[in-house]
Amino acid sequence: MASNKTKTLNLVKDKIQVSEQAKQRRKTYSAMKKQILAALEEGPMTLPELAKATQLPINEVTYYLMTLRKYGDVKTGEIDDNDEFFYYELKKQQNHGED
């Protein structure tokens, strides 16, 4: 079974050129993910706080944080006292199987 699993990819691996853009996207994502998650280790943060902590442009932080939220690494917390910015926090890795 296991040997079959990578079969189709192996068949085409030499024929398809991986684009530079794709490689770059992967790099950026893992770097962003690392930085954002590391910053959130300190506790829940709002986006401006997170941008300050990571020293990254805020619009990029927003984009990647929302993506992380979509894929379940981050969850939404309370809203701040001015009802302006939400806090975001790490989602504790839970056992799977829940809906």
Binding site: N4, K5, T6, T8, L9, L11, V12, K13, I16, V18, S19, Q21, A22, K23, R25, R26
Partner: peptide, 23 residues
């Protein structure tokens, strides 16, 4: 999305239904 795929094969490994078909 082949324009952005890095051909790492992670998806094919993850797919229990064996639906991924790069060919």
């Amino acid at each position: 999305d082949m324009d952005n795929c890095i051909l790492c094969g992670a998806c094919e490994k993850a797919c229990l239904a064996e639906a991924i078909d790069f060919t």
